[in-house]
Amino acid sequence: MKKLFVLLSIVLFADYSYADITAENRVQSRIDSVGVNILNKNRIQKRIVFTYNKEAKKKLLSTDKTLLKRQIVVYDGLYQSVQTDDELAAMLSREISFAVKSYSGAWGGRLDSLEVIAGSKKFETTADKRAVDYMVNAGYNPLALIVYINKTCPQKRSDFISRHNLTSKRLAAIYEYLTYKYPQYLENNEYISNKYYQNFLLNSIENRKKLEEKIRTKSAKAIRYE
């Protein structure tokens, strides 16, 4: 009886571990597939790898590995919010733009990487914009970037002394970028029936009014979003 019990425990444990590995492998394969698709379709001639990390948590200087090793680490906490391939592409495209930036510039890209770390707010907006370009080129819907950020990034009270922009400002900037550069995605909006996108529309009314005013007056001035 004891032998049978031990045998059964071993079989169950082995099965559980195998299922765990299989699940992780499936996630890694999905990330690799979407990530490499973005790299190939954008004809990015730089080596960038993608790693799914279930255990570790995102650290304060989370762009370290992206800028130093050109290794995009997808943390489990972030991956949990990803539902569609478009949203996964949104997450990866942002990181790819950081990794690509780390290849350019003086001293083998070290100077540009330092700039990204020191001027994180500025390059955060740039990364968002480049992510939209990468997504469009790779055949993903860029509105997923809005949905993904709206779901995952918290809203601070102020960004005056922060290293990051207010999420509402980032979302408004992406929306403006899409309005001018890729209006077709807003005209034939596949996300109009998406509740997360509707939530963005609901909480961005003031910022969108500012954009409408800019379009109406044909102004070229930068809008001060809230």
């Binding site: 700039e115 020191a118 001027g119 500025k122 390059f123 740039t126 914009k129 480049r130 370009d133 930068a222």
Partner: peptide, 12 residues
């Protein structure tokens, strides 16, 4: 023009 990054404080 794909992207414009404006010049910023601290010499960016």
């Amino acid at each position: 023009i794909e992207c414009i990054i404006t010049s910023g404080m601290n010499g960016f």
